[in-house]
Design a protein around this nucleic acid. Structure first.
Length: 465
RNA sequence: GGCGGCGUGGCCGAGUGGUUUAGGCAGGGGCCUGCAAAGCCCCGUACGGCGGUUCGAUUCCGCCCGCCGCCUCCA
């Protein structure tokens, strides 16, 4: 069974499911106010792999990830660009799904929009006020953090230390600087919804509580996002659920930052690369490989060097797949496929077991990948030694396990040759057949000049890249 | 000020109290090849510094140095 680090308890522990055989996960999605960058990509990749691995482990997975389509920055952008908020949100939500698809990430089963859940949020806020844990001021409705048992659990800090470190501006109407907005009173020109507290819009932390509980039910299994969401976002979601007396996420999972050099990638530092920019010159699978080569909780280095490194590594797996004609794997590899042992059941079983052991250990994808690369090397060695059946079985396994990580091997387009290039290849084969080495080498140079890697095999000259 | 993480061989990046190595990329040597490419084999003997615990620490403890993050919107 998968063991994962749980932010609430601070330890790695088994993902104990609410309903055996069924896993429910809620991943905090994006606020669609700008283009998605590779940090967002890492986050989505991490949870995509968790999902794929759970499916591989034989579970039914219900994956929900929200879209926050109303917030301050969307409003700011709409105002400054003379557009409506829905127009802005639609544009960047489109960019988000494009990026998700381009990265080979499975779309969630459901992607609720905040604006579609305002009614539920109003009901929640109304109830929190009725319970006496929330209060209204001139600017909105706030949750009284002092009334929440265990506030600071996820931040792993006491209320006192949180309070002393608070950097928010003092709002004299708020009982504590930590109290957060459940409902924001409308300012002129802003999109508004009606409520018992007057026209306004919901605060950010409320949507996820309402949507996750509505779609996944009380006590759903896993709630995730990047580390920056731990506090205040997830802390505040939890606070609302606690105040309502409802069982919330059983397990909290957070992934680490993308770094460029020593800096965190962020918009304020203007050092971010959008996913679309990355994919202009990089195989999306190489970025996935790069991301999975770091443990999901640690910071990950993304530089031109690490991208090139991952690209070379991926190339090695692709060549293995091509050498042994590894079959394309289904989008979601399942347990049944893993037991397809081919002609070397022991070899395959050992690989799958190693893979599982790593993955179960807090999603140790670096270890799992080490096993995959090791198996790739052994498959090639077996092939060189003439044990084709065993080599093929191992190569197939590499293909399946890579697919569980979302890396589809063997899917590269075969090299498309124009007529002239094809002619050079034919000429070269003829030259080699008649042992005219000088001419063969000249023809190879000509092909290399055209950007191809030339390989001579039993069936003559083949080209790559 | 409070809380937390990290410092591993040229680079990325795992891991562990001591018998034999993560893995990848780059580099060197070899096999294979007409020569290459690809593939395979071998290699460099790494764990920030100073103390401590221990028969023995990269792995545990303390201190120091350096880096990063959260405490405000943020994936």
């Amino acid at each position: 069974m998968l063991r994962l680090h749980d932010t609430a308890t601070g330890v790695v522990r088994p993902l104990e499911l609410r309903d055996p055989g069924h896993a429910s996960m809620y991943v905090c999605g994006l606020t669609v106010n700008d283009l998605p960058h590779i940090g967002h990509g890492r986050m989505a990749l991490v949870f995509d792999v968790i999902r794929r691995y759970l499916v591989f482990s034989g579970l039914d997975v219900h994956h929900v990830s929200n879209v926050t389509d109303i917030d301050d920055r969307i409003i700011d952008r709409a105002v400054s660009e003379g557009r409506t908020e829905p127009e802005v949100a639609a544009e960047f939500e489109g960019a988000w799904w494009e990026a998700i698809d381009a990265l080979g990430i499975l779309r969630p089963d459901e992607a609720p929009h905040a604006t579609a859940y305002v009614e539920g949020m109003v009901a929640l806020v109304t109830d929190l006020v009725a319970r006496g844990v929330a209060y209204q001021t001139s600017t909105g409705v706030y949750l009284d953090v002092e009334k929440i048992d265990g506030y600071g659990l996820l931040a792993r800090q006491s209320l006192d230390s949180l309070r002393s470190g608070a950097r928010v501006e003092v709002d004299p109407e708020k009982r504590s600087p930590l109290d957060f907005a459940l409902w924001k009173t409308a300012k002129p020109g802003e999109p508004t919804w009606d409520s018992p507290f007057g026209p306004g819009r919901p605060g950010w932390h409320t949507e996820c509580v309402v949507m996750s509980l509505d779609l996944l039910g009380d006590g759903f299994d896993l709630h995730g996002g990047a580390v920056d969401l731990i506090f205040p976002h997830h802390e505040n979601e939890r606070a609302q659920a606690v105040a309502e007396g409802r069982a919330f996420a059983r397990h909290w999972v957070h992934n680490g930052w993308v770094m460029t050099g020593t800096e965190k990638m962020s918009k304020s530092l203007a050092n971010f690369v959008t996913i679309a920019q990355l994919l202009e010159g990089t195989d999306s699978r190489a970025y996935r490989l790069l991301a999975l080569r770091s443990q999901y909780r640690s910071q990950m280095q993304v530089t031109p060097e690490t991208i090139a490194d991952a690209t070379s590594a991926l190339d090695r797996l692709d060549r293995l797949a091509e050498r042994f004609s590894v079959r394309p794997q289904p989008t979601l590899a399942t347990v049944a496929i893993s037991s397809d042992a081919g002609d070397a059941p022991d070899l395959v079983a050992a690989e799958v077991e190693t893979f599982r052991a790593h993955m179960d250990d807090d999603l140790d994808t670096p270890g799992a990948l080490a096993g995959i690369f090791d198996a790739a090397g052994r498959a090639n060695a077996l092939g060189d030694a003439g044990d084709t059946d065993a080599a093929r079985a191992l190569a197939e396994t590499v293909g399946v396990l890579s697919a569980v990580l979302g890396i589809a091997l063997g899917g590269r387009d075969s090299v498309v040759m124009d007529e002239e290039t094809a002619g050079l290849v034919t000429e070269r084969d003829a030259a080699r057949a008649s042992r005219e080495w000088g001419r063969a080498d000249d023809l190879r140079d000509a092909l290399v000049e055209r950007g191809f890697v030339v390989e001579d095999g039993p069936n003559g000259t083949t080209l790559r890249r």
